[in-house]
Design a protein around this nucleic acid. Sequence first.
DNA 1: CGGGACATTGAGTGGCATCAAGGCGTGTGG
DNA 2: CCACACGCCTTGATGCCACTCAATGTCCCG
Lengths: 252, 252
Amino acid sequence: MEAGTVLDLNQLRRSCGSCALHELCLPAGIDRQDMERLDTAVRDKRTLDRGKLLFRQGDAFHALYVVRSGSLKTYVENPAGDAQILGFSLPGEIVGVDALADDRHQCSAEALERTSICELPYSMMQQVTRDVPSLHRQLMRVISREVVAEQSHLVMMGRQQAQERLATFLRSLSERYGRLSRDTATLTLPMSRYDIANYLGLVVETVSRLFGRMEDAGILSVNRKTVRILRPDLLAGLCGNARPLPRGREAG
Amino acid sequence: MEAGTVLDLNQLRRSCGSCALHELCLPAGIDRQDMERLDTAVRDKRTLDRGKLLFRQGDAFHALYVVRSGSLKTYVENPAGDAQILGFSLPGEIVGVDALADDRHQCSAEALERTSICELPYSMMQQVTRDVPSLHRQLMRVISREVVAEQSHLVMMGRQQAQERLATFLRSLSERYGRLSRDTATLTLPMSRYDIANYLGLVVETVSRLFGRMEDAGILSVNRKTVRILRPDLLAGLCGNARPLPRGREAG
DNA sequence: CGGGACATTGAGTGGCATCAAGGCGTGTGG
DNA sequence: CCACACGCCTTGATGCCACTCAATGTCCCG
């Protein structure tokens, strides 16, 4: 249960060393002494209800954030008012690095469900990275990983067809679930079909149809928020330049 | 002339303090003392001929680079062999930050013309960022800017039509030319139509047709590599959700 | 002057968006 | 507990934008 997970995490001491996720957000190169100094810099965590904003595009930069439980979407809005979702953030993943460029958030971050957040205030960050060289290196690593993730998103948007995009999205999500020691075959999607479509540069009808076709092909079993990956091998095949799956039901 | 520009730069002392571009690649927060320490870390610059690679996807990370003159394209290749161009790098812009994530380049960088490069070796970088806190902050700023640039690219790929993409691309290029104190109305495109199309997630024929329509509409004058922006106001209008320009010649 | 890469132009097609209608699940109030 | 409404999702029909295929034009370089 979701509430159970949140409670467990709440019971953890408020400390990076004892955080179940510290290997995710700080994978390497931090020794015990450095860890203690980081602990003192991380502020009380916050909890956001579904739909609540962690920060808004244009806000002054105050802190970097790490998701502890739950999930976020980050998106930019253009003057005309429509949005592009840049990514979804799962536990252990960092949010807010776009604001380091000019001390102002370039995107908004919204909770997709009840979500718990770690906060590393800016002022503390400066001091910590000065005192703890290994953390500095680690932080650059994490930010660079952000760059690489966006590059993959770009490749998807630029070169892949709708079917490949959805397959790639599901595979990526499954892989990230694996890193969280969750079942990689049973995805519980915290985001709506509209969000998925937007993230993939498609419309919701297209996503819905593609789910249907993948189900007909025996690759997935789809039920609302729950997607079961029945044939990971076939799903992987759809990420390349495979032929589109047939449209009509019972056509295979 | 291009050759002249390169020669002028070659004659500069090999020092960040005297580099005409240091305000671009190191915009703020570096005092004289720090600058001198940085100087000693920046290795002799390299020169690449058109088509030569600065680094290749998968290469071990050795250094970050800044373009001094000329230009680069960065791109990723998928197993199937086709590429997605991630961006074009003009003088003063940094290249290679994607490799900080796991010490291996995630994309390739290729010279679009004869190009001169500054090199900040990895070993030096570690030492310098340790000794020079302001440079550390500055480096994070530059990397974050990379993140923001990719976000804009993503918005373009996800939500904009072909015509808006090309208009946005030309405006962005014009703005960057301005920062280099070049004429913002006369763009000399170092990249091919294929490269532009690929970057925008289109095919070359579409780009060619769009150039034609914008010329017919009196917005541009296009001659091979030379694009003159005659009506910046109308070009800006095309970046939003404007109606497509008419197809036939003499239709306005 | 000829070859080849790059660029333009035209005709036809297809994938995805758009428009429209209906199903399903959830929450709310009576 | 049920009725209702609303949001989310699915499914179908149609149209259009950009891709594909093909041919010609243009520049550059040997």
